[in-house]
């Protein structure tokens, strides 16, 4: 499994859980050229993100190359303090990572 790449902050406000996360990932579009060598960096980007709350999938995101480097993802779902929020990603090279945080 990859090194820890996902930071999650989740807190509850009136039955709504507000989640903010950042995933450490280069998100290469496949169009960037390295000036020194002139070579093009091949595409390397997250394609799928799965979010679950207490082991139930609440959201799936499918991303293309137009999502920024070190992608930020925020969302709000119904939930309570003490819930577990898990975020997992899979990129176009088959790398993946997952992280869980408790709702404060």
């Amino acid at each position: 499994m990859a090194a820890r790449t996902i930071k999650i902050r989740a807190h509850e406000v009136d039955g709504q859980v507000i989640v903010k996360s950042v995933i450490n990932h280069p998100m290469e579009t496949g169009r960037r050229k390295i000036k020194k060598t002139g070579k093009t960096v091949p595409p390397h980007y997250i394609r799928e993100v799965i979010v679950s709350r207490n082991r139930r999938i609440v959201m799936e995101a499918f991303w293309g190359k137009s999502i920024s480097r070190n992608p930020f993802l925020a969302f709000e779902i119904a939930g309570r303090k003490g819930d577990s929020i898990t975020i997992s990603w899979l990129d176009n090279r088959g790398n993946s990572d997952t992280a869980t945080a408790k709702v404060r």
């Binding site: 709350r53 959201m59 995101a61 499918f62 991303w63 293309g64 925020a74 969302f75 779902i77 119904a78």
Partner: peptide, 14 residues
């Protein structure tokens, strides 16, 4: 991007 929402949800940000 597409965000598929499986529970009541109205907000995403990226």
């Amino acid at each position: 991007a597409v965000f598929k929402l499986y529970e009541s949800q109205n907000f995403v940000s990226t």
